[in-house]
Design a protein around this nucleic acid. Structure first.
Length: 616
RNA sequence: GCCCCCGUAGCUCAGUUGGAUAGAGCAGCAGUUUCCUAAACUGCGGGCCGCAGGUUCAAUUCCUGCCGGGGGUACCA
């Protein structure tokens, strides 16, 4: 056997059970269409495998089967009624014997996969290594930078920071699961005029005393007071600007204060990251680029991109319908954009990434457009070779606001909800629930933490990125329905089943998938459950492609809902049909599905950043 | 003014390369437990898909305009 080593091979998605079924269906359909209609359809590409495969979709409802092929385009071409088109294609349709059953409904040619074949294919795909299901080597050899969280450490860690943190951590895990070498970066806001403000406030209003009791809340009250008094006292803004300028020029007193603020806040942030279970490969701050600004700016100057405008040094982006990108203020101090540009240059030189993602709120969309455009202009001007360009590889991944009780959270106005408070409340609620339901649970407090944190994390990932989410205590502390704890609960149920199965059967391991008899399974619920499991690899891939962890969240909700009704399905008398029964062939087969479902849920939860407790 | 995002059930949201009777959860109501974990399951009610045009065999989905909400729009980040 010869192994093909074409360079495109790694670009192809892994061949999963699901994609294989699609291919077989498409191939069969393509030849059937050709046989039936090659006379009346001139364009041969309309019955090519790839064209047909692209048309195949998933039916809206399970009753229509597993795969659907819309006949409308052909109906229009040959000017025949849909049922006629169906009959003609169906007459020429030869699919592998065991692929499934074809039906016609509503203008679609539908395929319901053969349950036994579906089950066998899945078992062969998953059971040998359940943990690996859905993973791939697609990203092998590619380096992916994911910058997220990036809090401004002059401010408290509020729930406003939750989304970037949770979305970024999830994307990082997803890409790693797909074989990428990921570098998670926390780019701390540890520089800028805000520190000038803090320093002024600290010196003016006895900050030492203010911070002594509770550093974080003390710092916040200084910050809030500054913004309140600034409204009536313009000299404060000027003082802050000056303080920051002194800091930037290396003034020892300013530097000492700045270090102190940094240490105090970072301690608090680190604690919260630990609770969330998030680690970074690289923690840097804007200040890291202080000594790299001049070089970045002079590179832009040499390329002839800079100009002077109203006393500031800028890159004019008027022809791209963007405001000018400011590099230096009138007083010579640099800005956010300058640091991001220097940062990108540095990252490109250091990492040569295949992609670099910025998980930052959509309010900063224009900022990133500017920065990326400046770099594009620079690479154009320097005549960089195509593979030496970072343009197109750097991406802003935007997301909507977190609002509280329908109001925007404004740190400056002191309107803050501490993430830590939220997490602690969620955890103690989980704890009291466990005491109600499963008081003897070993490791109770650790499981409570997993569930409480899971509830909060999941709440941020159960809506598409671009939408604003409205934080309410009621919503965050609801553990029923479409929530993180619901997913975790289902996982715990599955784990419990597995424990019982092992305790009553001789073998401690997974059933041998070659010997399983799936012909004993014929109900639609189980079929649907398996068809849904089969979609997991494609779901992970889509989540990566769209930078959208939500796709995994909604998939998991669908999967767990199906499992829970599978688990509680009833016979004619309304009695629950148990999975573990005296019928060994049936039990083994059902348990193989339990094992596959459990592994999929555990992996999915992990990719979202939730723990999967075995008991709760 | 210009640019971007959002508008779907009472509430929170799915529905995204345009396709079948627009779906979930919460809340409400009615059931299910001699316990394979009821943080669950089953059923019921609930919709001018913001409005008006256009493209199409087909529009919640694409285009245009309008209305409503949010954000951005050079020395904050």
């Amino acid at each position: 056997m010869t192994r093909l080593t074409s360079p495109t091979q790694t670009e192809k998605p892994m061949l999963t059970s699901y994609t294989r079924f699609q291919q077989e269906f498409a191939t069969g359909l393509a030849s059937a269409i050709e046989a039936a209609y090659s006379e009346s359809i001139d364009d041969a590409s309309l019955y090519s495998d790839t064209h047909v495969a692209a048309l195949i979709e998933r039916p809206r409802k399970a009753q229509f089967g597993d795969l659907a092929f819309p006949l409308f385009p052909y109906v229009k071409l040959v000017k025949e009624a849909p049922p006629v088109v169906f009959e003609k294609i169906f007459a020429k349709l030869y699919l592998p014997d065991d692929l499934g059953e074809v039906t016609f409904a509503g203008g679609y040619l539908n395929l319901t996969l053969n349950t036994t074949r579906l089950a066998k294919a899945l078992a062969a795909e998953i059971l040998p290594a359940p943990d690996q299901f859905g993973s791939s080597s697609f990203g092998a050899g590619k380096r992916m930078l994911v910058e997220f969280s990036s809090p401004n450490i002059a401010k408290p860690f509020g729930i406003g920071h939750l989304r970037t943190t949770v979305i970024g951590a999830s994307l990082n895990r997803i890409f790693a699961f797909l074989g990428y070498e990921t570098v998670s970066i926390n780019y701390l806001g540890d520089w800028g005029t805000q520190f000038g403000k803090m320093i002024v406030a600290y010196q003016k209003w006895d900050g030492e005393k203010e911070l002594a009791e509770n550093a974080i809340k003390g710092a916040l009250s200084l910050y809030v007071r500054f913004h309140e008094e600034e409204k009536n006292d313009p000299t404060l803004s000027e003082a802050a600007r000056l303080a920051f300028k002194k800091l930037e020029d290396g003034d020892p007193e300013m530097t000492e204060l700045w270090e102190m603020f940094k240490t105090v806040s970072w301690k608090e942030f680190e604690r919260v990251y630990n609770v969330l279970g998030i680690k970074f490969d690289l923690i840097t701050g804007e200040s890291f680029f202080n000594d790299k600004m001049d070089e970045a700016i002079s590179r832009l100057e040499k390329a002839g991109l800079t100009s002077e405008s109203r006393g500031a040094e800028v890159v004019d982006l008027g022809e791209f319908n963007l405001p000018p990108c400011l590099l230096r203020k009138q007083d010579g101090a640099t800005l956010y954009a300058t640091r991001d540009i220097a940062g990108l240059m540095y990252r490109w030189d250091t990492y040569r990434f295949c992609e670099s993602l910025y998980i930052v709120g959509s309010a900063q969309a224009d900022h990133f457009k500017q920065v990326f455009k400046v770099l594009e202009l620079l690479e154009d001007a320097e005549g960089a070779a195509p593979d030496e360009r970072m343009t197109g590889k750097v991406k802003h991944i935007p997301f909507g606001w977190v609002k509280f009780e329908d109001q925007a959270l404004k740190t400056r106005a002191g309107h803050v909800i501490y993430l830590d408070d939220v997490l602690q409340k969620a955890i103690s609620l989980a704890e009291s629930k466990i005491r109600d339901k499963n008081a003897e649970l070993a490791d109770l407090s650790n499981v409570a933490k997993q569930i409480g944190v899971g509830a909060i994390v999941f709440s941020q990932l159960s809506v598409r990125r671009q939408k604003d989410v409205n934080f309410t205590w009621e919503g965050a502390l609801n553990y029923e329905g479409e929530t993180g704890p619901y997913l975790q609960y289902t996982h715990a149920r599955l784990s419990s089943l597995l424990r019982r199965y092992h305790s009553q059967s001789d073998e401690q391991s997974v059933p041998n998938y070659n010997e399983l008899d799936y012909t004993v399974i014929n109900d639609t619920n189980t079929h649907q459950l398996m068809a849904t499991i089969a979609r997991f690899p494609a779901t992970v891939e889509n989540a990566a492609k769209e930078y959208e962890p939500f796709l995994i969240s909604s998939y998991l909700l669908e999967l767990t809902a199906l499992f829970n009704s599978f688990y509680q399905r009833r016979d004619e008398n309304g009695k629950i049909v148990k999975i573990l029964s005296d019928n060994k062939a049936l039990t083994d087969s059902l348990m193989s599905i339990v094992i596959m479902t459990r592994a999929t849920i555990a992996t999915g939860l992990h990719l979202l950043g939730l723990e999967a407790p075995e008991e709760m």
